[in-house]
């Protein structure tokens, strides 16, 4: 089904200039870049290096100033806003640093949201949302409101929401930025499992630890790619989690029983 060598994302000469009137910021400077299907990539770099700008363009949230962007074979750099909305709905799943769940809306309803815009009937929506929540281990928390969930749980709801329309690509901008190390590891575990199941995943992070869980690391600096390398010793989130569990069990034997 998935062809390991076919590029799903192909970017050529991508430039993004923010024109704030007084000053022009070159957030991206003619970036050439491609992502093959089934990759797990970490985008790294110092603050202000253009990582988020890149993610916004990849996610069809923002249009480049110059350059071309082919997503899954189609040129999206010239598409209308509504056509892009449909692409985002069908092909891309977003995970944000701040989760961006709708408050006063249950986990289940939050996960249903992308399907609402895909015009899927209510019964099917609920079924699929429940499945997605089970896949991230939240079957018991479906009817909870976001403020009744921990940060890690909220981010898992967000991942379920990103998955529910079965997109090809998942884009995560600093998904663990607001989480403790254990919750971060749990999120990474889900990403690794999803990747194994065939999803292309792009994670923005500035933590080398997190990047070490990915297959490929791309480093940005001043709107340009300065490093693009394969990761040699990929960390397995499952193993790391077990390690953490063992330690905490050792320190606090009454927990985790």
């Amino acid at each position: 089904m998935t062809d390991e060598n076919k590029p799903i994302i192909e970017i050529k000469g991508l430039t993004k200039i923010y024109d704030t009137g007084k000053i022009k910021v070159n957030a991206l400077n003619g970036v050439d870049f491609s992502i093959k299907e089934c990759e797990l990539i970490a985008i790294m770099g110092p603050s202000g290096s253009g990582k988020s700008t890149m993610m916004n363009v990849l996610g069809c949230l923002d249009k480049p100033t110059d350059g071309t962007y082919h997503l899954d074979g189609t040129d999206v750099s010239t598409m209308s806003e509504d056509a892009l909305a449909e692409i985002r709905n069908q092909k891309i799943g977003f995970v944000f640093q701040t989760f961006n769940l709708l408050s006063r809306t249950s986990a289940l309803k939050n996960v249903e949201l992308p399907m609402v815009y895909a015009k899927i009937p209510a019964a099917e929506r609920e079924e699929r949302a429940k499945k997605a929540l089970s896949a991230v281990g939240l079957e018991e928390r479906m009817y909870h409101m976001p403020n009744e969930l921990s940060g890690g749980q909220q981010q898992r709801v967000a991942i379920a929401r990103a998955l529910v329309n079965d997109p090809k690509i998942i884009l995560a901008d600093e998904p663990t930025g607001n989480l403790d190390s254990r919750s971060s590891e749990e999120i990474l575990l889900i990403f690794q499992q999803l990747n194994r199941a065939g999803k292309t995943i792009v994670i923005v992070t500035h933590e080398p630890d997190i990047a070490q869980h990915c297959k490929r690391n791309v480093v940005f600096k001043d709107g340009e790619i300065v490093t693009d390398k394969k990761v040699e010793h990929i960390l397995d989130a499952k193993a790391v989690l077990e390690e953490i569990n063992k330690k905490s069990h050792h320190l606090h034997p009454h927990l985790n029983q």
């Binding site: 949230l61 449909e86 985002r88 069908q90 709708l102 949201l113 992308p114 815009y117």
Partner: peptide, 16 residues
Amino acid sequence: TREIGLRKAIGAKKAD
């Protein structure tokens, strides 16, 4: 505003 941004990000069209 954030809710609107989120809805748009996950596929809401202008008309929605």
